[in-house]
């Protein structure tokens, strides 16, 4: 088992992500540009064979045509055998590229691998330019994995994405494709975006006289392994490469410092979604630096905690926050 698979398995069995099964849909097939050119060539040659009444011309033309027909079957079978059986992902954030990993199963009962299959999460209304790049998997003997990037458009519950599975294997004459989707829904956390940093938050908080230590932002303590709840941005890649595992920095906690993230602190931001995103950013920063924090939204306030579960609860609250909740 290589490092990548070990990492995937770790994500899978931590039980923090979502796991779901997808079912394949119908498989479609259509000639590629090269396939069209090949078809036109075959047709012209067939007309020539008729005109010349030449059996060897017929032989070669029909050989081309029969190879084309065989390709229809091979290309279709190649895509048809692909099953995306499981999707693993960590927390999802709106308008941020989230890495999701799908398990590919080769449903072909015979011992024949699936070759050159491309995957992509499809967005409705996206153009060729705005669609993400296709991710190619060269070979799947029995099982494999593909990592895709998904950027949900909104927070809250969203429908599972539609995944395009396509291939031009073996001879690039035809493109066969299908979509894998299921009516599951996922809770998407708000986008972590804002103008105000954690330092600002602490400044704002000091004005409210609810905190003793103002200037201790937390010092580097040590490294720990990456957890599902961590942002991939926190990974110290240099260190990770050296130790062959994903490491993130741990910071000293500032004693008994407690941080309150209050909805009212975002009052300077006019837009409701911007305020939610700012709250999410602060929650994320606090969690990253292992701070003890609480969120307060009008009459609702959580306890002070510094745990992945607390982070999840706070983000869920923000994910489902509506305008009526802040009236």
């Amino acid at each position: 088992m290589n490092g990548y698979e070990a990492w995937i398995n770790k994500l899978k069995f931590q039980g923090k992500g979502f796991t779901t099964e997808l079912r394949p849909d119908k498989t479609y097939i259509f000639p590629t540009g090269f396939g069209f050119a090949f078809g036109i060539l075959s047709f012209i040659l067939l007309v020539m064979a008729i005109g010349y009444g030449n059996n060897i011309l017929y032989f070669f033309v029909f050989f081309l045509v029969s190879m084309g027909l065989t390709t229809v079957w091979l290309t279709n079978k190649n895509v048809d055998s692909v099953r995306l059986t499981e999707i693993q992902m960590s927390y999802l954030y709106a308008n941020e590229p989230n890495l999701i990993t799908a398990q590919i199963d080769n449903a072909n009962k015979k011992d024949s691998p699936v070759w050159d299959v491309e995957f992509r999460i499809e967005y409705k209304g996206a153009t060729k330019k705005t669609q993400p790049e296709l991710t190619m998997v060269n070979e799947v003997e029995n099982t494999g994995f593909v990592s895709l990037s998904w950027m949900p458009a909104k927070r809250g519950y969203v429908r599972a994405p539609r995944i395009l599975i396509q291939s031009r294997f073996p001879f690039k004459l035809l493109r066969s494709w299908k979509y894998s989707h299921r009516p599951n829904e996922y809770l998407v956390f708000p986008q972590r975006k804002g103008k105000e940093s954690l330092r600002t938050l602490l400044g704002l908080q000091s004005q409210k006289d609810e905190m003793a230590n103002l200037d201790n932002e937390g010092l580097f303590r040590d490294y720990r392994e990456f957890q599902n709840s961590d942002s991939p941005a926190r990974i110290d890649w240099k260190r990770s490469v050296k130790h062959q595992k994903h490491l993130v920095k741990n910071y000293e906690k500032s004693g008994d410092r407690k941080i309150l993230i209050d909805w009212d602190m975002t009052a300077s931001l006019g837009d409701f979604e911007e305020r939610v995103s700012q709250m999410a950013l602060w929650v994320d920063l606090c969690h990253e630096q292992n701070e003890t924090f609480s969120i307060k939204i009008k009459n609702f306030q959580t306890d002070y905690f510094a745990s992945p579960n607390h982070y999840k609860n706070c983000m869920e609250k923000l994910a489902l926050l509506t305008e009526t909740d802040v009236l």
């Binding site: 008729i50 059996n55 032989f59 027909l69």
Partner: peptide, 21 residues
């Protein structure tokens, strides 16, 4: 795999004379 289709096409395709080149 394409041989059966080749044989069927070669044997069954009518050798009509549409035009003479």
């Amino acid at each position: 795999k394409s041989v059966p289709a080749l044989i069927i096409l070669f044997v069954a395709f009518p050798r009509f004379v549409l035009f003479q080149v």
